[in-house]
Design a binder for these strands. Structure first.
Length: 887
RNA sequence: GGGAGAUUAGCUCAGCUGGUUCAGAGCAUCUGCCUUACAAGCAGAGGGUCACUGGUUCGAACCCAGUAUCUCCCA
């Protein structure tokens, strides 16, 4: 009788290599047709929710996305198989500064300058561009196999999410948590906006240090030399500071000095902040243009003179070089200082300047009027939920980082001087005061109330030009994707929130993760997620970050085309422990491809078997053993998942498939060429194969789905994607089965080692004589010993035959008669070495057991183990001594 | 300058409560095999003073102190 595994074979099972390109698109389409990725509130199931860290709407897939989304997909697919209602919400981020910079650059190519456009016209261009190129990245994720519920795709700037942002802004403003204030910000003069710290790129440069002479007032000819890298800012100086302990400036404190060229008098102040060994030890204080100086100015109550315009040119307060760009002014003032004899010297030194990630402009620390959010009130509960493990961070070391940041949290500058983003819903009255409201008409009402002027019209109000920081929409993401602001009691949010796991990079722990926690607690009184898994940064084999400039970043789509999505996914995961950077190496992807190929060939083998119903069940031992092995592996894999050890889980499946199933189990049950197999064994083998496909599916969704359908006839909705995850239930005698097989396999390994040592080749039939202390056990595994060891004969005896190679396992001796291959001296030497080793081991255990304090202090189970070790060592020594006598 | 973390095989990393294992995995390396599923493969082997110096302990990769080097975060 013939048991067929599948009705049709779209793939050619005679081909020895698996070709992923033939099947991947097909299965992704089928999954979508079947609606497997769609999630709906279902009270009978436990929800499992993941919100994607939304990539930039105009971005394209890079290696970091590959890693991050592979991990999410593994978690989501496994949850789905565990019978949970798995909901993975995809979407994109409007990424205000990045996208605006791209649109500005694009318009420039078309000869259009942003400044010549109205806000409305610019946004029209931006939306047109977003509609054309936006969301490409989501299509790319499908090629990776990402099982997102695409019907739920959101965009942080779509109307509903924008409404959520505005509601939150108004709410927090009314709670008194949002205010306007003047602060030192990172100003991008080219982009004309404040940017956040993470949007700056530090650049190593060789800068010049200029030594300038400030004349001491009332002491003509006496100068105080000050070192500065920014001579063009001396017009904004308000003091010169020295360290109070610095002997060189004794007596100068309280004196006044004259700013070079300008002649304005400023005081000399003392502060410990000043480093005595940097520059000349005298520091010019320019509060408007340096953050440290600003703080120094606050401390000493100094005035602030801001000499720069928003575009980086000098304003009239500078008095000199007005209208010139800061760098032109620098060149000119150096010339003039030199001419005036006030420039002592110029030194080169290595320095770091901050530049804008988008416009590349050198960042200017600048005082400006911005919108801020108070963080203290929000940070406190957000810290607590991480401290008390309501939210767990993986790896846990990030708890420390999180704590330090949350305890020193500073107010959040939420305004950006851009157009692409959510415009701040504040409306200025003609008198300069303002109101905050969701809509213009509400604003008008408030404005009339506030001003007492009922004649005010909407056209009298001027809406704030600034937009909100992108993170001000992404911090609401886990709530807003379920419309939790507009409709706080809807079925989706009640069911899917809080989400389960968040997978993201540690670089946005503060900007995103911490703020989502705050938002969750503030607006829903509930954490946004239970676990946060931090991935590492993908680097090249030399440890460098992937970057376009270095050209060290492969195109993920090329990789998928070349190796298959499954191979790329496993390649990323093979070496990606949580929080550790991943050194990407194409070899890992090759390893993934090889693994897919291994699986494919195992399938080809099993597929080729024909069952003969007349044959008796011949492989009860292998079948029982692999059942136990599988159960143990499932338990181990589940444990790895519970601890978010994703790459360990993968490695465990990898070894189960490759070593246990292919190298051992299949070799044990494999019939001789073109011989039939008994039906019972084939039935078990097929069931095991299916279990392996299930365990592998989260990691390698495509090949497992393909083989699932090849392996047996399937109903219309019978897909491994929705198959139940294997249960770990181990058979009662599992431990004994595993231990027994280990002993048998040790004998096989011994025989194979002899084969290799004696250069016998895999085919030469050998005879094995066993002087075993467990003959019954070995007899039970005789079939396996013969097959895997290539034995033509297995006999039990009390003594070894002459002219045999021997090896010792535990208390048993094994002999392989090999006339003509025996080198007596070498045999003796080998056994003696082994004996000496065993004796040394015994002695050390004996010594430990003989130590009174050990006997007193060690736990009973430790003591018992040591005694067992001693007994085992004694047995082995006896057997070795016997073997030596026989040589 | 302040803080956090790391250092285990050639590489990337595990190693849980100090004792199952006189230190484990994957990859790489070496040797031998084109053995009727797979050379993208099979069988076997070698490879470590657990950064260094002390300390605690019957016992330390693990706990403590110091040193060195590296990484990240904050300023």
């Amino acid at each position: 009788m013939l048991i067929t595994c599948a009705d049709s074979l779209p793939m050619n099972p005679t081909k020895t290599t698996y070709t992923p390109a033939d099947v991947e698109a097909k299965w992704y389409q089928r999954w979508q047709e079947q609606g497997f990725f769609k999630a709906r509130p279902n009270p009978k199931k436990t929800p499992y929710t993941v919100v994607i860290p939304p990539p930039n709407v105009t971005g394209v897939l890079h290696m970091g996305h590959m890693l991050n989304n592979t991990i999410q997909d593994v978690l989501v697919r496994r949850a789905r198989m565990l019978g949970q209602e798995a909901c993975w919400v995809p979407g994109t981020d409007h990424a205000s500064i990045a996208t605006e910079a791209k649109v500005v650059a694009l318009l420039k190519e078309q000869g259009i300058e942003k400044k010549d456009l109205t806000r409305e016209a610019f946004l029209e261009h931006a939306f047109a561009w977003k509609d054309k190129y936006g969301g490409i990245i989501l299509e790319q994720l499908k090629q990776l196999g990402a099982s997102c519920d695409w019907d739920r795709t959101r965009f942080t700037m779509e109307p509903k999410l924008t409404e959520a942002v505005l509601r939150v802004f108004v709410d927090l403003y009314r709670k008194g948590l949002i205010y306007r204030g003047v602060r030192m910000v990172n100003w991008d003069p080219l982009g004309g906006t404040a940017i956040s710290d993470e949007e700056m790129i530090p650049k190593d440069v060789m800068a010049k240090m200029y030594y300038l002479n400030y004349e001491v007032v009332g002491q003509p000819g006496r100068f105080l030399t000050v070192a500065t890298s920014r001579p063009e800012t001396i017009m904004a100086d308000v003091a010169v500071a020295v360290n109070p302990t610095d002997e060189r400036f004794r007596g100068l404190a309280g004196q006044r000095v004259r700013i070079p060229l300008l002649g304005r008098e400023i005081p000399v102040i003392q502060d410990e902040y000043v480093l005595t060994d940097f520059g000349t030890g005298a520091l010019k204080v320019t509060p408007a243009h340096d953050l440290n100086d600003y703080n120094l100015g606050l401390k000493h109550n100094l005035p602030i003179i801001d000499i720069l315009n928003d575009d980086g040119t000098l304003n009239e307060k500078a008095e000199l070089y007005v209208g010139q760009d800061r760098f032109a002014a620098r060149r000119n003032i150096v010339k003039d200082l030199e001419a005036a004899g006030l420039l002592v010297k110029v030194e080169e030194y290595a320095s770091i300047v901050q530049t804008s990630e988008r416009t590349k402009a050198v960042i200017e620390p600048k005082l400006s009027m911005q919108w801020f959010m108070k963080m203290e009130h929000l940070a406190k509960p957000a810290l607590e939920v991480v401290e008390n493990d309501t939210i767990r961070l993986y790896p846990a070391k990030f708890k420390n980082t999180y704590r330090v940041w949350m305890e020193n949290v500073r107010d959040w500058c939420i305004s950006r001087q851009l157009w692409w983003g959510q415009q701040i819903p504040a409306y200025y009255l003609p008198d300069g005061s303002f109101v905050v409201a969701l809509t213009a008409s509400e604003a008008l009402e408030l404005a009339r109330e506030q001003s007492g002027n009922n004649e005010l019209k909407i056209s009298d109000l001027r809406q704030e030009e600034d937009v909100l920081d992108t993170w001000f929409s992404s911090w609401l993401w886990p709530i807003s994707v379920f419309d939790g602001f507009a409709d706080p009691d809807n079925a989706d949010i009640n069911y899917f929130y809080p989400t389960s796991d968040l997978v993201t990079g540690p670089d946005i722990l503060f900007f995103w993760v911490a703020r989502m926690i705050m938002a969750g607690l503030e607006f829903r009184q509930e954490v946004p997620f239970r676990n946060v898994y931090f991935t590492g940064i993908v680097r090249d084999t030399q440890g460098r970050k992937m970057s376009k400039q270095l050209g060290n970043s492969p195109d993920p789509l090329d990789l998928i085309a070349q190796f298959g999505a499954d191979a790329v996914r496993t390649g990323m995961l093979f070496s990606a422990p949580a929080g550790n950077d991943l050194l990407y190496d194409e070899k890992l992807v090759e390893q993934g491809r090889n693994f897919a190929n291994k699986l494919w060939n195992a399938f080809r083998l099993v597929k080729g078997w024909e069952a003969d119903a007349a044959l008796p069940f011949a492989h009860d031992k292998p079948v029982a053993w692999f059942g136990a092995r599988l159960a143990a592996a499932v338990a181990e894999i589940d444990d790895h998942f519970a601890k978010f050890r994703i790459s360990d889980a993968l490695l465990a499946v990898y070894k189960l498939v490759w070593d246990d199933f292919c190298a051992l189990y299949l070799e044990m049950v494999k019939p001789a060429y073109q011989q039939p197999i008994d039906a019972e064994t084939l039935r078990h083998t097929t069931a095991y194969f299916e279990a392996l496909l299930k365990l592998l599916h989260p990691f390698m969704p495509f090949i497992t789905e393909e083989l699932w359908h090849e392996l047996g006839p399937r109903g219309p909705r019978d897909y491994v994607t929705v198959a139940p995850w294997p249960k770990p239930g181990a058979p009662a005698d599992g431990a004994a089965l595993l231990a027994g097989m280990d002993k048998a396999l040790a004998v096989v390994a011994g025989v194979r080692a002899v084969r290799n040592q004696k250069n016998l080749g895999p085919n030469k039939p050998l005879a094995l004589v066993a002087k075993s202390d467990e003959p019954a056990l070995l007899a039970a595994y005789e079939g396996i010993l013969r097959k895997l060891g290539g034995l033509e004969d297995l006999t039990f005896a009390d003594a070894g035959p002459a002219g045999a190679v021997s090896f010792v396992l535990g208390g048993s001796e094994f002999f392989i008669p090999l006339e003509g291959h025996i080198d007596v001296a070498a045999e003796r030497a080998r056994l003696e070495k082994e004996l000496a080793y065993a004796q040394g081991f015994r002695d050390s255990v004996q010594k430990k057991l003989g130590n009174e304090k050990f006997a007193q202090n060690a736990k009973p189970d430790v003591l018992a183990r040591e005694q067992q070790k001693l007994a085992d060592a004694e047995t082995k020594i006896t057997a070795l001594e016997q073997a030596l006598k026989g040589v």
